[in-house]
Design a protein around this nucleic acid. Structure first.
Length: 203
DNA sequence: CGGAAGATCCTCT
DNA sequence: GAGGATCTTCCGG
């Protein structure tokens, strides 16, 4: 392990803190997506040893007109009706991938931004920029940086290539969700206060 | 079966 | 701040 790799492992905050697996993973996600969206802030997400600290999320609830689950199961959204702790990946605007974590059935949390911490060189290569604040500052960007695509849909977060390490509570700010037209006033976007790695400012 | 909308990002003005 | 890229999904006819 070279110096940079060691540095990144330390930054992960995962030394001595176990990732969420099995029953712990289920208990963490089998809750209201609003609570999960807040508790995910600060958690460290890795996909094949590339990732960072989650700094921005959005909650999508059952009976939420903006949610892909609103009209019931379909070929695209079936992962949202699977196990808590499941991953739901979908194509956005025909161009980007977006990453969600499934909570209670028909609800999920969209992962909107990370503070890069592990595997910086891989992210820089995939994104084509070395501006660290722009590597994962949006749902499509972070999927590109982490190499996420549809092949990772409908998998559990405690199985490779994923790992999720919990966090102590952080200072949270909230606001309206981005890019939606239905149920647009609901303040179900959450971020870590003062983070420089958000997709858009949040206060 | 056609068409519009979409949980986005980048470039240009 | 506006507009284009790009394509899947879903709904209406």
């Amino acid at each position: 392990m070279n110096d940079l790799t060691q540095f990144e492992s330390d930054r992960a905050g995962a030394i001595g803190v176990p990732s969420l697996t099995g029953e712990h993973l289920r208990q963490f996600f089998e809750r209201n997506a609003l609570d999960v969206a807040r508790d995910l802030l600060g958690c460290h997400l890795l996909v094949a040893d590339v990732g960072g600290r989650i700094v921005e999320t959005e909650a999508y609830l059952p009976d939420d007109e903006a949610s892909h689950s609103f009209r019931g199961p379909s070929a695209r959204n079936v992962a949202m009706f699977g196990l808590p702790g499941n991953v739901y990946v979908y194509r956005s605007y025909g161009v980007h991938w977006c990453l969600n974590f499934v909570c209670q059935p028909a609800s999920a949390v969209l992962i909107r931004a990370l503070e890069p911490a592990t595997g910086l060189q891989a992210m820089i290569g995939r994104r084509g920029t070395d501006v660290v604040t722009q590597l994962c500052s949006g749902p499509g960007k972070l999927c590109q940086a982490l190499g996420i695509d549809l092949t990772l849909n409908d998998r559990l977060l405690d199985r490779p290539p994923f790992s999720l390490t919990p966090s102590d509570p952080v200072q949270i700010v909230s606001g309206k969700r981005i890019g939606i037209t239905k149920n647009a006033e609901a303040p179900w976007r959450f971020g870590i206060a003062g983070s420089r790695y958000l997709s858009k400012p949040l206060r």
